[in-house]
């Protein structure tokens, strides 16, 4: 039976191929959006387990959506060769998106991963299960 992770891997491979094409064609916005999609897909591959993407996976989807909006906003605010009319918190508006959204916001993924590690990523009973398998194997050798 096909696993959801099979689908994720096929999507990731397709995204990687499309990213190379988008780069060669200089499709900046498309490349940016595909980059975010590839990052999220790769992350989901690690977050997914037993039929669920879990809280970390959901956060990755939210971060991905925010990053896509941020990239679109960044490109719409970016006017090469022109002086910015005003600065936002010390930066050119498009650069402010890079600094305050693209840089700072994704760290929330680490917060959710930390908070839900024991409840979803590796509950104690699942770790025990692995330890038991290891124990049985060592006895067998």
């Amino acid at each position: 039976m096909r696993d959801f992770r099979d689908t994720l891997v096929y999507i990731l491979a397709a995204l990687c191929a499309l990213l190379m094409i988008a780069a060669l064609l200089k499709w900046y916005i498309v490349f940016s959006i595909l980059t975010v999609c590839a990052i999220v897909t790769y992350g989901l591959l690690g977050a997914y387990k037993k039929g669920q993407i879990g809280p970390t996976g959901l956060t990755l989807l939210v971060v991905g959506a925010v990053l896509i909006v941020a990239f679109i906003a960044l490109f719409s605010l970016w006017k090469p060769g022109q002086l910015p009319e005003k600065l936002i918190l010390g930066f050119h508006p498009a650069t402010a998106i890079l600094v305050y959204v693209i840089w700072l916001f994704p760290i929330i993924t680490g917060v959710v991963y930390a908070l839900t590690f024991k409840s979803f990523t590796l509950p104690p009973e699942e770790f025990e299960q692995i330890k038991n398998i290891a124990k049985k194997q060592n006895e067998g050798r």
């Binding site: 990052i39 890079l98 600094v99 760290i107």
Partner: peptide, 27 residues
């Protein structure tokens, strides 16, 4: 863009490989 990537890169590495690499060392 190199250095700002790391705010997402570190959590991503832990999500994708942290648990599985550590469990490999368990068994």
């Amino acid at each position: 863009w190199i250095t700002f990537a790391q705010s997402l890169a570190f959590p991503l590495a832990y999500i994708v490989l942290g648990k599985r690499m550590r469990l490999l060392a368990e068994v």
